[in-house]
């Protein structure tokens, strides 16, 4: 439970090696002996993921694409106490998925189906705790899919719609949801890709999420200006949008 100075006690990161997920953890004001639970596929990588000094690390096996994983990770994560924060950071970009049916399915199974399954299960626990916060890493791509990776856009649009609905559903239960919509973030996921305009760093995302949490926001765009730019993009006429090489 957050303490009297607002510090977090138990934090679960779905996609425990995610650069953005770890940047969020790094930006948070944590209790000196907070427990950070990292859930993901590769236990060795989770054990090596960088965490702030002093925090206790727990690694949990979770593969978004395997059936039954949601229930198992939820049980494991709530065994040691209440969860104060869940950061849903798992995701794959799946470049070329629009030409590869197998990859397209994997993108949707990871970013959408698997994550939603986990969040449904976890939200049930948070609801009975009557406190807690869920941070969902969506993307600008959810609002305006790009021609180069619209399967990813579709997967994020599904996740984003789910997160908005979850926020409404949990309203007045004591549980809050924050939807994060970063644009292009320099990092592992985007390595080798040409940077889009208004690119940011994982640290920028971490800081923005922390600020939004402190202010009790339900949506945050990174950078903040995207909040105005992204909706404008959705009004760009299709013929022009198609010709923009995004």
């Amino acid at each position: 439970m957050r303490d009297g100075t607002g510090r977090w006690g138990r934090v679960l990161v779905l996609g425990g090696t995610s650069e953005l997920g770890l940047a969020v953890v790094d930006a948070l004001d944590l209790q000196p002996r907070a427990e950070v639970l990292l859930a993901g596929r590769d236990l060795d990588a989770l054990a090596a993921a960088p965490l702030p000094d002093g925090v206790r690390r727990t690694c949990l096996h979770w593969d978004a694409t395997s059936p039954g994983a949601a229930a198992a990770v939820t049980d494991a994560a709530t065994q040691g106490g209440d969860l104060d924060l869940v950061v849903a950071a798992a995701g794959i970009l799946g470049l070329g998925a629009h030409e590869d049916a197998g990859l397209a399915a994997e993108v949707l199974m990871t970013n959408t189906a698997g994550l939603i399954e986990a969040l449904v299960t976890l939200a049930g626990r948070l609801r009975s705790q009557r406190h807690g916060t869920v941070v969902v890493l969506s993307s600008v791509a959810a609002v305006r899919p790009r021609r180069s990776n619209y399967v990813y856009g579709a997967s994020k649009a599904g996740l984003d719609a789910f997160a908005q609905g979850l926020a409404d559903d949990l309203h007045s239960t004591g549980v809050r949801v924050l939807v994060v919509r970063p644009g292009f973030v320099h990092g592992r996921m985007t390595a080798g890709l040409p940077a889009a305009p208004m690119a940011t760093s994982p640290e920028d995302v971490g800081r923005a999420v922390r600020l939004a949490l402190d202010r009790g926001r339900s949506t945050v765009w990174v950078p903040a200006a995207l909040r105005w730019v992204a909706p404008v993009l959705t009004f760009v006429p299709r013929p022009i949008w198609r010709r923009l090489d995004l």
Binding site: M1, G4, R130
Partner: peptide, 9 residues
């Protein structure tokens, strides 16, 4: 009394 945290009970 310090009102730092509120709680649903």
């Amino acid at each position: 009394w310090g009102r730092t945290t509120s709680s649903l009970c």
